[in-house]
Design a binder for these strands. Structure first.
Lengths: 131, 131
DNA sequence: GGTCTAGTTAACCGAACAGTTAAATAGGAG
DNA sequence: CTCCTATTTAACTGTTCGGTTAACTAGACC
């Protein structure tokens, strides 16, 4: 079900660079050649080519020959794995935050009651649940 | 509106590591100390501490002193910027893919109708590359 | 053939990363 | 105060990253 974690690594890694994100945004407007993609950036062609390789290995884009050019386009399902991970995480996140909120407001109450620093006497419910 | 791109860089970068993702997943079950977070990993404590620093600089988690321990918890809005970027990208993505699909089927139709209006160079050379 | 265009590969470099061990720090407990 | 626990900081190391320039490859065009 979960794709190979490496793919997730690569996808997130690929997205961690502003140039690569810009390339993706540009590609969302439609396929483009390497040269077209490179133009807006103040960077050598080989540098762009490397970025494309990173995106390609992350399965976010595809490059195919067309005459002497190479046409780059988004890989249809490319974003899915990463997006899926994030959405799942976000669900847990919110859930966790809800739990935490109860806990925080309790602490805040204690703080505003003038217990100075640390006042951390919350029942340390060490939950061990596995999901 | 868009958060500083650096934050996006850091968030995606932080998520690009399986250890860090695992830490986040674990943290989604509730706050934990550094030691607790470290236990499941076959890695030194300082290494985990560094990962936590990365997550913290990406605003994905928070660390706060509690006696001599440090309690780590998810940062409430942490995932938002990255998630938002991805969702926006995904929208364009699909849109782009739709356009592309339409274009392709249109071309195919024209081909089968034999109308010479396809200003396209030539059909794809069946390239035998690796996939 | 030669040349022009489009892009990649190779070799290199400094900076950042991911891990290590050893020492330092902060606070609780005896 | 001393010791113990929890964690960070420091210093070091090998690897990867992101960029460069120079050389190579692939195909179009004359």
């Amino acid at each position: 079900m979960d794709p190979s974690p490496q793919l997730l690594d690569r996808a997130f890694f690929a997205l961690a660079d502003p140039t690569r994100r810009a390339i993706i945004e540009r590609l969302a407007e439609g396929p483009a050649t390497v040269g077209e993609l490179a133009r807006p950036f103040d960077m050598s062609l080989p540098a762009i080519s490397k970025h494309l390789t990173v995106l390609e290995r992350a399965r976010l884009i595809r490059r195919e020959r067309e005459a002497q050019r190479r046409l780059c386009s988004l890989e249809p399902e490319g974003l899915r794995p990463a997006l899926h991970w994030m959405e799942r995480a976000e669900a847990f996140w919110t859930e966790s935050l809800d739990r935490l909120t109860g806990y925080l407001s309790q602490e805040q109450e204690e703080l505003s009651h003038g217990t100075g620093r640390n006042a951390r006497k919350k029942p340390k419910g060490r939950r061990k649940g596995k999901v």
